[in-house]
Design a protein around this nucleic acid. Structure first.
Length: 222
DNA sequence: GCGACAG
DNA sequence: ATCTTGTCGC
């Protein structure tokens, strides 16, 4: 299939250094779906938070039929059409995207955060809850705030961050136009003492609501 | 062939 | 990803 070649081309266009202006609006991005849904829909949600108040200033949700099933390494092709449609509904583009999934910590350095960042040309960060590729260069400490870089085939592609005591670590990786150090800065700045950063949390919640609303039985007649 | 495997 | 309330522990 040529999707993999497409990812190589996108990865070549990804900027791994900081190329972002003042960050005042941070967008959390997430997608919800249900295996039990015969229509095979994907529900994308974007929530824009003001920095530093972390107050929601805009949000959008779009539901579309899934273009393809979930295939490891090809997640972006399933979720990005709905995400782009949701982004298009925002009154203004955000300054930074926080995406639920990997950035460059991907077999072809083109996880969904990188893919989305490049096609929109917006700065992006990948915030994943589990591993796709790479290994930590050392064991991750148990203490909250513990951090360790993740390397894959000789490249530093991200880091594990113990965002909260006794919680599984976050897998942080640069997406587009953001360095690893800056990615970590924005994740830590939006944690609010919880495991997931607020933009991601809010988007996850909003996506879940969008899915339940779309799947809810039609309003009763009579 | 075997093991790994974002959401 | 999703199925799901209360409950145990710091």
């Amino acid at each position: 299939m040529k999707l993999r070649r497409c990812q190589l081309e996108l990865a070549a266009r990804a900027v791994r250094e900081d190329a972002l202006g003042e960050v005042r609006r941070i967008a959390g991005v997430d997608v919800s779906s249900s295996r039990f849904d015969p229509a095979r829909m994907v529900h994308a949600a974007v929530v824009v938070l003001d920095w530093p108040s972390l107050t929601p200033v805009a949000r959008a949700a779009v539901s579309l039929p899934a273009p393809m099933p979930y295939i490891t390494g090809l997640l972006a092709f399933r979720e990005i059409p709905a995400i782009e449609a949701a982004l298009a509904q925002l009154p203004d583009p955000p300054d930074l995207l926080m995406v639920d999934g990997q950035g460059i910590a991907h077999p072809r350095r083109c996880g969904i955060a990188t893919h989305l960042g490049v096609v929109t040309d917006l700065p992006s960060i990948g915030v994943a809850k589990s591993r796709l590729v790479g290994q930590p260069v050392a064991p991750l400490g148990e203490e909250p705030g513990a951090l360790v870089e993740v390397r894959d085939r000789g490249d530093v592609v991200g880091a594990l961050l113990r965002s909260r005591a006794r919680a599984n670590p976050l897998h942080i990786s640069p997406g587009h136009r953001v360095s690893l150090a800056t990615a970590l800065h924005w994740v830590r700045a939006t944690l609010r003492g919880r495991r997931l950063p607020e933009p991601t949390r809010a988007a996850h919640e909003w996506a879940g609501q969008a899915r339940r609303a779309a799947m809810a039985p039609p309003p009763g007649r009579e």
